[in-house]
């Protein structure tokens, strides 16, 4: 028997988990926000399926979706492999219970639930989309989430839908959420004022994160290199685009909020 015959696993391809946190509060009904999300998701799934099947270097992509309105909900009982994922439209209504979404995400980022296969996980990605000030309580939930090992490692991207001067708490929540922690690199926050761009931004961010995150060793410059590449790609794509703003937050810049 040769050494190769000692392998019981037909495939030990590693898994990259993509978590989508989608605001389904009532305000998402205005200006077609929720329709944009519903239109973007099937396209994202197609893109992720292509990336997952072409980039079997190390990354098989799994998707999880958490919606939050009056409460948070796992749309799919378990993480679904990209080729198996079928999107069913969601409706908007209710409050912006970001606290419940953070708590649900935390509960999914354990070996016993969302990250439940034995080994072989790549750094996950969490994409948060929201359009309004969250209800009270999100800060303590985020503090707990930020202690979770997988969340600390995750690439975190915040998409603010139509943030204006009046949505100070949303800006604060997104800034806190997008702190890179152990993923390193700069923070990635995208503010979309032209809502017709939402679809395009969500699609680009998803494909960039999944493509870079599911590749083999990046090691651009040690820690944080992939986070930096994601941020740079987003900046290259959207910085000169009207209606899409990437606020400078790091260093001596004044807080976004």
């Amino acid at each position: 028997m040769a050494l190769i015959d000692n392998r019981p696993r037909r495939c030990s391809c590693r898994r990259m988990n993509m978590f989508y946190l989608i605001d389904t509060s009532g305000s998402m009904n205005y200006n077609g926000c929720i329709d944009s999300v519903n239109a973007a998701m099937p396209e994202i799934v197609d893109i992720l399926t292509d990336i997952s099947s072409s980039n079997r270097d190390q990354g098989e992509i799994y998707l999880s979706c958490i919606t939050f309105g009056n409460d948070a909900r796992m749309l799919y009982d378990r993480p679904v492999a990209a080729p198996d994922f079928r999107w069913a439209n969601v409706r908007a209504g209710g409050l912006t219970n970001l606290e419940a979404a953070f708590r649900m995400l935390e509960s999914q980022m354990h070996r016993s639930s969302g990250l439940n296969s034995e080994d072989g996980h790549l750094r996950p990605a969490v994409i948060l989309m929201t359009d309004g000030d969250p209800d009270d309580g999100w800060e303590s939930a985020l503090e707990k989430l930020q202690q979770n090992r997988w969340f600390r490692e995750a690439y975190k991207i915040a998409i603010a839908i139509g943030a204006n001067a009046g949505t100070k708490m949303m800006k604060r929540a997104l800034t806190k959420f997008a702190e890179p922690l152990d993923a390193g690199g700069p923070m990635t926050i995208i503010n979309i004022s032209d809502l017709t761009r939402l679809h395009e931004v969500v699609r680009f961010v998803s494909s960039t994160v999944s493509r870079l995150g599911s590749q083999s060793t990046g090691a651009a410059r040690g820690v944080g290199s992939v986070g930096e590449e994601i941020n740079n790609a987003v900046r290259r794509e959207f910085n000169p685009v009207d209606g899409v703003d990437i606020p400078p937050i790091s260093g001596d810049d004044r807080p976004w909020w």
Binding site: Y76, D77, A81, R86, A88
Partner: peptide, 17 residues
């Protein structure tokens, strides 16, 4: 139920795989 069915079938496909 129809939306929920689509989601359940997605999970089912992954589990069967």
């Amino acid at each position: 139920d129809a939306a929920e069915l689509i989601r359940k079938h997605s999970v089912l496909a992954t589990l069967r795989r």
